[in-house]
Design a binder for these strands. Structure first.
Length: 350
DNA sequence: GAGAAC
DNA sequence: GTTCTC
């Protein structure tokens, strides 16, 4: 629903960043290091999804080990970083892999092979070199660099420069439905839907939101499968209940949440938004002595769950007509639904 | 704790 | 690199 912006860099962020860079180094160093690279990428994601400062978990290597994707080796490096502010292995890697190349691998959607090619054949070692080379047209006939790839690269650069733009609904919808189709094939997924502004059919979207419901015991396996999807450029956050990543093709950010079966409607409602709409619903709930959150609709006094499995059920419990996502803008749709005066939506084939 | 899978 | 398995 919303893009996460990291303003002040926390220690977790810094560590996650280092591990992400280390992952990049290993990726650049060759296919033999492929698993090592993803291991660091996973660790980076785990740290980013941590709710508390890393030091809380870092009393000793043992407790760090309990975190997903953090084994003995990375645990040691975390402790090293907390103590000295540096990680020797990273300092070593930095000397082997030019920093500009690392940045290129992140923004360009080119793999290490192409970046290597650019570096060795065109003496391109950073973003600026690349821009100059593109503008001079000397990359035009390079082998392994088709027109299409070049185009992708330039878009990536542009996005990087302006810092993630919103994309037209049609683009988001195309990418989103394709992603949804891929993900729905994963075993154990009971139900999955797009949420956020994509589901509300806004003219432009900032990112792709998706809610998946499945048995809790399947969550980990499902998130692992999701992370293997070929359309992923890079993983941003990887926890048990949430996965975020950038799409290769267009660098759109994707946020996926896993929820329990009986929470699905509440979660879908919550992550579909708009913020204003769900806020109004929450206030309405409060008036009735209820509480609405992403887990369900509850009676505050008794704690009894009144609804949550389906969106329909929640609106029904409020005594109003189902409000289609397209109308959930926090204007007067709730009042209208209460009076059963909602306008009929003509379903448009988008 | 080695070995395979990822 | 981590994790699972034997």
């Amino acid at each position: 629903m919303m893009r996460q912006i990291v303003t002040n860099k926390t220690r977790n962020q810094e560590l996650a960043d280092i591990f992400h860079q280390m992952a990049g180094c290993y990726r650049y160093l060759g296919p033999e290091q492929r698993f090592r690279s993803t291991a660091y990428e996973n660790a980076s994601g785990t740290i980013q999804s941590l709710k508390n400062d890393i030091s809380i978990y870092a009393a000793n290597a043992k407790s760090l080990n309990r975190l997903n994707n953090i084994g003995s080796s990375i645990a040691e490096k975390i402790i090293e970083y907390l103590g000295t502010g540096k990680i020797a292995a990273f300092e070593r890697l930095k000397r082997e892999v030019p920093k500009g190349l690392l940045e290129l691998m992140n923004i360009s959607s080119f793999g290490p092979a192409t970046v290597k090619l650019l570096h060795e054949n065109f003496d391109i070692s950073n973003k600026e070199d690349l821009i100059l080379a593109i503008e001079s047209g000397k990359l035009k006939d390079a082998k392994g660099l088709g027109e299409k790839k070049l185009e992708n690269l330039m878009r990536g650069l542009k996005l990087y420069k302006t810092g993630q733009e919103r994309v037209p609904l049609s683009t988001g919808l195309k990418a989103g439905t394709k992603l949804l189709e891929t993900i729905q094939k994963i075993n154990g997924i009971v139900k999955a839907d797009l949420a956020g502004s994509l589901r509300r059919g806004k003219k432009t979207i900032g990112d792709i939101d998706m809610v998946i419901c499945a048995q809790k015991q399947d969550w980990k396996r499902i998130t692992n499968r999701i992370k293997e999807i070929g359309q992923i450029e890079r993983i941003l956050v990887s926890g048990d209940t949430k996965v975020s990543f950038l799409l290769k093709q267009n660098h759109i950010q994707v946020d996926i949440r896993l929820v329990q079966v009986d929470e699905y409607g509440a979660a879908l409602l919550y992550f579909t938004g708009s913020k204003e709409h769900t806020l109004k619903l929450r206030l309405l709930a409060k008036e009735k002595g209820w509480k609405l959150n992403e887990y369900g609709l509850f009676d505050v006094k008794t704690g009894e769950k009144l609804a949550g499995k389906t969106e329909q059920g929640i609106y029904e419990r409020f005594g109003m007509k189902y409000i289609p996502p397209e109308l959930r803008e926090g204007r007067d749709e709730i009042e209208l639904a209460n009076e059963h005066k909602l306008p009929d939506l003509v379903k448009s084939a988008l």
